[in-house]
Design a protein around this nucleic acid. Structure first.
Lengths: 225, 225
DNA sequence: ACGAGTTATCGTCAAGGTGATGAGAAAAGG
DNA sequence: CCTTTTCTCATCACCTTGACGATAACTCGT
């Protein structure tokens, strides 16, 4: 049998919310091609490794954390013949959503790793498109799934959850209506009984993520007619 | 540089609606491995070929039609180390939705090709899972996108569109409410001015697909609580 | 020709979700 | 103690939904 030979990589779109802003984990490349340019973290899939396992391994390497909670799912694959000058490389992109970790982000292969705001990037390879696809996937999934909790620590307030939506969607949301929807959607959030302390304003009840897989009813973003 | 070597294939989940039933295009394998077992159509990506182009090529080869209309999108990638006994093969699955073609379905590589009902399959490789993922994607996308029109010929009635939903979702829909939703969602369907003739019952107006990318409001399936 | 059957299309109505907004509760800070 | 801040609950008009009645416009059998 003679069929073309490929290399297969995984690339990661790792998103988090810091200071009310959606940010992506980027690395500065330490090797050619695209030396010194910013890129999504990623690497080659090992010989006997599942795709999802490779994604988890790369995520652990790049964040320096074994499993920081959050969410990891396959995004899409990209395989244009000229996307990598080294040869025929197909990449399977994964989307990760993480809470705001005070992570040191030790770079193993890369020269540097940083959380950067979304937008106006000029990344290596076709990573601009992969990033755009990942952000759009995240925005869309926040509507119909409880995935926003993946951006939050184990216990969080309704306001923190709302700020995730505002950061990811880039729009403001009425706190009163959001509170009604978030607490009434079955399985979205569950009360812990505890409350915040020591912060200005009335103390907020603390919640943890519920066990629903789908949000019913969904929390829709404003459709701009 | 020494990194593992992969082969890359595309596999197709080609769905259509025939006789009010959702069906998938399957081929009987003419070569090892899994000789004589049913499988999704697919094949190796050529050396200088884009993934989407490979999917379109395979679709044209398997259906025997250049471009029968319909819809083609990437589904997901599958790359478990042991999924193909020939070695390390990663497959990029595509989902195609086609109108009911009276297609001969000439097999080029395969021993046979047929439209088969969904369910209770035992396909080669990990194709059972790929098929399940494809069907679920189709079911889900019918809610939020005008994709149901991809199952229809260029001109169709509201009833035909409703029967697509019923076949894909496997549930009955009230014709009156569906008519209201389908005709009121902007950009979903556009009237042609023509009507059906010679069929029993009141003649139905004919529509063609609109230009909307998203269905607003969506057409939701019954949530089974 | 004509009624019966069939299918398409329009209308109505109550229940529930939505956005806009008011108002009270419960803390910190001066 | 009063102001400010933030959280939480309540109200209201509007819209969409599902259930279902009613009518329109054809084919078919006799």
């Amino acid at each position: 049998m003679s069929y073309p030979v490929f290399a297969v990589t995984v690339d990661l779109v790792v998103l988090t919310v810091q200071e009310g802003e959606l940010r992506v984990l980027l690395v500065r490349r330490g090797i050619e091609p695209h030396l010194d340019r910013w890129a999504l973290p990623g690497g080659f899939v090992h010989a006997d490794e599942d795709l999802a396992a490779a994604a988890r391994r790369e995520l652990a390497e790049e964040t320096g954390l074994a499993w920081p909670g959050g969410h990891l799912e396959q995004l899409a694959s990209y395989g244009a013949p000229d996307r990598d000058p080294r040869g025929r490389v197909v990449t399977v992109a994964y989307l990760a959503l993480l809470p705001d970790l005070p992570a040191p982000l030790a770079g193993t292969d890369a020269a540097a790793a940083e959380w950067r705001p979304i937008g106006g990037q000029h990344l290596a390879f076709d990573h601009d498109r992969i990033l755009a696809d990942g952000v759009e996937r995240a925005r869309s999934k926040l509507e119909y799934t409880p995935l926003a909790t993946a951006f939050c620590p184990p216990e969080f307030t309704v306001a923190a959850l709302r700020q995730v939506y505002e950061a990811v969607w880039g729009e403001t949301i009425d706190p009163r209506n959001f509170h009604r929807k978030a607490t009434s959607a079955p399985g979205f959030v569950e009360p812990t009984g505890r409350s915040t302390e020591g912060e200005p304003g009335r103390p907020a009840k603390l919640y943890r993520r519920g066990d629903a897989a789908l949000l019913n009813p969904p929390i829709l973003r404003r459709k701009d007619d």
